[in-house]
């Protein structure tokens, strides 16, 4: 099924998506659209389906039913992780996942947008990546002074930033960022919000987060997920005064 013409200006389009794991409905008739250049925060209690939704968008999990379109025309449900990543969808994991036995610079080097095949990595362009490209990214995420350190030796917050840097290096159209400030200090959290707002100027971004102060800082539209579908959508003020949201998520 091809979505109607009006939706071709969306960067991400999910409709009627469901996914069941052993009888547990992780995603239930979920509909969500994201416009080009938009930043969206997704909140919701544990088990609301946030990570499963990310898994479906990035090809890790196939939905039982429903449409998932990227850029209005590309059906993501038929593609694998590598193809989807190469289309321009980058993902940051909930637990910071960097290549621990590589240096910070090499982490960025591997993420940089370029040919991805083994041939290129053995003999070709992949071996001739200009150091300036790596430095540029490391400056944005403020890890330039750490470029020769092993990623394993970074602090938790620095790893989160390195992973965001790897995401930027991929130069994706859409960034999916899962809990970027988990385990960060208040100052780091504020810095991360600033960084994401900067990134959102020329990328579409989806941020999953629990930290309400951080979500407020992001200053964008908020979608509340509950039991695998959308409970509410709107500004942070609108959703945080929504009765049902208060009931299931924010708590009384």
């Amino acid at each position: 099924m091809i979505p109607d013409r009006g939706l071709t200006n969306t960067v991400l389009y999910l409709d009627g998506v469901s996914k069941t794991f052993d009888g547990f409905r992780a995603i239930n008739n979920l509909a969500l659209t994201l416009e080009h250049g938009e930043m969206r925060a997704i909140i919701g209690p544990n088990g609301a389906g946030k990570t499963t939704m990310m898994d479906i968008i990035t090809g890790k999990t196939k939905p039982d039913e429903g449409d998932v379109y990227f850029d209005g025309t590309t059906d993501l449900t038929t593609l694998d992780e590598a193809s989807i990543a190469n289309l321009g969808i980058g993902r940051k994991f909930q637990k910071p996942t960097v290549f621990e036995s590589h240096t910070v610079a090499d982490n960025i080097r591997l993420a940089l947008k370029d040919e991805r095949g083994p041939w290129s990595a053995l003999f070709g362009a992949r071996n001739r990546i200009a150091p300036e490209r790596i430095e540029h990214i490391l400056e944005i995420v403020r890890l330039i002074d750490h470029h020769e350190r092993l990623a394993a030796d970074l602090s938790h917050g620095q790893k989160q930033w390195l992973e965001i840097g790897m995401l930027l290096a991929q130069d994706p159209k859409l960034l999916l960022v899962d809990e970027p400030v988990a385990g960060m200090t208040d100052a780091e959290t504020a810095d991360t919000a600033r960084l994401l707002r900067e990134i959102a100027r020329d990328h579409s971004v989806v941020v999953v987060e629990h930290d309400m102060a951080f979500v407020r800082d992001l200053d964008c539209k908020v979608t509340v997920l509950h039991e695998g579908s959308v409970l509410a959508e709107g500004t942070i003020d609108a959703v945080s005064s929504n009765e049902r949201v208060i009931e299931v998520y924010l708590g009384r």
């Binding site: 890790k60 992780e81 621990e100």
Partner: peptide, 30 residues
């Protein structure tokens, strides 16, 4: 070579490597 760095990346975080757009199976087969 960068190929070797990708191999190590696969060893340490296979799914991360996939999500970066590398076709892990091709690297392993080679």
């Amino acid at each position: 070579s960068t190929y070797g760095k990708v191999l190590v990346a696969i060893r340490d975080a296979e799914s991360r490597t996939r999500f970066l757009g590398y076709r892990v199976e091709t690297y392993k087969v080679v």
